[in-house]
Computed example of a mutant assay.
Amino acid sequence: MTPYTAGEKQTLRASLDRHRDAVLWKLEGLDDEQLRRPMTPTGTSLLGLVKHLASVEYGWFVETFGGRAEPRWFDPYDDMRATPDETTQRIVAFYGRARAAADAVITELPLAAQGRPAWRDITVSLRWTLVHMIEETARHAGHMDILRELADGATGDHPRLTGTG
């Protein structure tokens, strides 16, 4: 839950984590075929969206601020689907490592720190990057909401608590 009275960095980080957790929750309870099934004409799948989000976490947080990202085994401009040789475990673990690497940058740097993405001729602050990645993750979590509903009818952005009155 996003804290109501925390400082700026803690609030932004909590918001990002809430959407990141929703992304992973969208995978729970589905079999491998459902996770990798292309659900759009372009081939987007639930696992493909997780792979994409891992790649952009590495790009925006790690590479933009001078770190070295884990090598990608795929074309980052064609990453919205899971290929037959990519296991669910591999993609989910890649996302976990990307999150951890991004979190290290967020923890280490002040919000005013500036970086330069290699693929664009701009300078960005960590603050801007956090807002951008909240938007990016929320946008794709919304895509995952639709794909999950199409896969098995499940809806919502987090597990519902039972027995809470």
Results as ranks from 00 to 15, higher is better:
L27N: 04
W119F: 09
L111M: 12
D157Q: 15
M133H: 00
V62Q: 10
L46D: 02
A69T: 02
A141V: 06
L16K: 10
R20Q: 10
Q34T: 04
A14L: 08
V124G: 05
G7Y: 03
L46F: 02
H52M: 08
E63A: 06
V131S: 05
D103F: 10
E70S: 09
G67L: 04
D32H: 01
T87D: 00
T129N: 00
T83W: 12
R127T: 03
G165K: 06
R99K: 11
D121G: 04
T64I: 03
V124D: 03
T11C: 13
M80N: 11
Y58G: 14
V62G: 11
L30E: 07
P41G: 13
T44M: 12
R127Q: 06
P71Q: 01
D31W: 14
E70R: 13
L130P: 06
V23H: 01
R90H: 09
H52S: 08
L24H: 11
G48H: 00
Y4I: 08
E63M: 03
S45D: 12
L35W: 04
M133D: 00
E28W: 05
A112H: 13
P110S: 13
R120L: 06
L130R: 09
D85C: 08
A93Q: 10
L150M: 15
I146P: 09
G67F: 06
L126V: 04
D32P: 02
S45I: 07
A138K: 02
A98Y: 11
W60L: 01
R99W: 08
E33V: 06
A82R: 02
R127H: 10
F61H: 10
Y77D: 15
G43K: 12
G142I: 01
T155P: 09
A101G: 11
T5D: 09
L30K: 06
D85Q: 12
G96I: 07
Y4P: 09
A101N: 09
Q89T: 03
T83N: 11
P41N: 07
W60Y: 02
D121E: 14
T123M: 03
F74G: 05
V92L: 02
A154Y: 15
F94L: 15
P117F: 05
V124Q: 03
G66F: 00
G156F: 14
R13G: 05
P159Q: 07
I91E: 00
L147R: 01
T129K: 00
P76L: 07
D152S: 02
D152H: 03
F74K: 09
A138R: 05
D79I: 06
V50G: 01
R99H: 06
R72D: 12
H132Y: 08
P117R: 05
I146N: 08
E63Q: 03
T87N: 02
G115N: 00
I146E: 13
L16R: 12
